[in-house]
């Protein structure tokens, strides 16, 4: 139903670590693979072997190039950031309130935003209302598809306990995707968000996303030595004993 719940019991969502996402698309493809056989209609691909293949995906990995401003020591090199994006399961989900059929709804128990595909008439308005491009119309079934947060996995008693997590989280090789209750400040994901300064996408849209993104850590010149400290360059100064071979004698003596 189209009005949003006042509050939800839990706020399940994803936390994506942009510092270690290598942009491998594993999450996107495993999402496609699980969901084409899972919740609702298959995620179809039209003209799959043709000139203009177009399929429905619930998770897509963008790649951005960021040009930092020059640092005091000179121009800073550009950086590449991989950026997976799926539904953020917003608290104030505009995609839900615009839906004329009631097919779009936000679950009271866990905050997951879902489409009841049996009721969806495929008008596309919810996709227009979503600022994030997180909803895609299935080209064959004509109903709206979106990330289900793998609602058919996370509670699925036919899966072993440890597999009751989203497909994308389970497959991510870099461990860049975390799943949990962002409504519980003590949960691992909430802790991560606090420690790493997790942020919302387009906060100005007022959607209050549940999913959070962890920023890339400082790179290149902004960074000290390994472990964060400055490298003791003085240590690498030429040994005092006459040249390298002179040092060698001393050093060999030391190791005995």
């Amino acid at each position: 139903m189209t009005t949003l719940p006042e509050s939800t019991q839990r706020k399940l969502g994803l936390v994506i670590d942009l510092d270690i996402c290598v942009g491998c698309h594993a999450c996107a493809v495993s999402c496609k693979e699980w969901n084409t056989g899972g919740y609702g209609a298959p995620l179809a691909d039209t003209d799959a072997y043709g000139a203009d293949p177009v399929g429905a995906w619930l998770n897509r990995v963008h790649t951005f190039e960021v040009q930092p401003p020059p640092s005091p020591t000179g121009p800073a090199p550009a950086q590449i950031v991989h950026f997976p994006k799926s539904c953020l399961h917003c608290d104030d989900a505009p995609c839900v309130t615009v839906c004329p059929t009631g097919a779009s709804y936000k679950r009271v128990e866990d905050g997951i935003v879902l489409v009841n595909e049996d009721h969806c008439m495929g008008c596309g308005l919810c996709a227009w209302a979503c600022p994030y491009g997180a909803r895609e119309m299935d080209p064959l079934a004509g109903v709206m598809k979106k990330c289900t947060l793998c609602v058919d996995r996370i509670y699925n008693e036919n899966l072993p306990e440890e597999d009751r997590i989203p497909a994308c989280v389970r497959s991510c090789p870099a461990g860049a995707r975390h799943f949990g209750d962002l409504g519980d400040p003590d949960s691992d994901v909430s802790q991560l968000v606090t420690e790493r300064g997790g942020f919302d996408l387009m906060p100005e849209q007022g959607t209050k996303p549940t999913n959070k993104y962890l920023p890339p850590r400082p790179r290149d010149a902004q960074l000290g030595g390994c472990g964060g400290g400055a490298v003791n360059l003085a240590e690498l100064a030429e040994p005092e004993v006459k040249g390298f071979l002179g040092w060698l004698d001393k050093a060999l003596e030391r190791i005995g």
Binding site: H25, W57, H62, T63, F64, E65, V66, Q67, Q79, I80
Partner: peptide, 10 residues
């Protein structure tokens, strides 16, 4: 971090 541009679409 700086100025952002798209490098590769998904």
């Amino acid at each position: 971090m700086g100025r952002v541009r798209l490098f590769e679409a998904p």
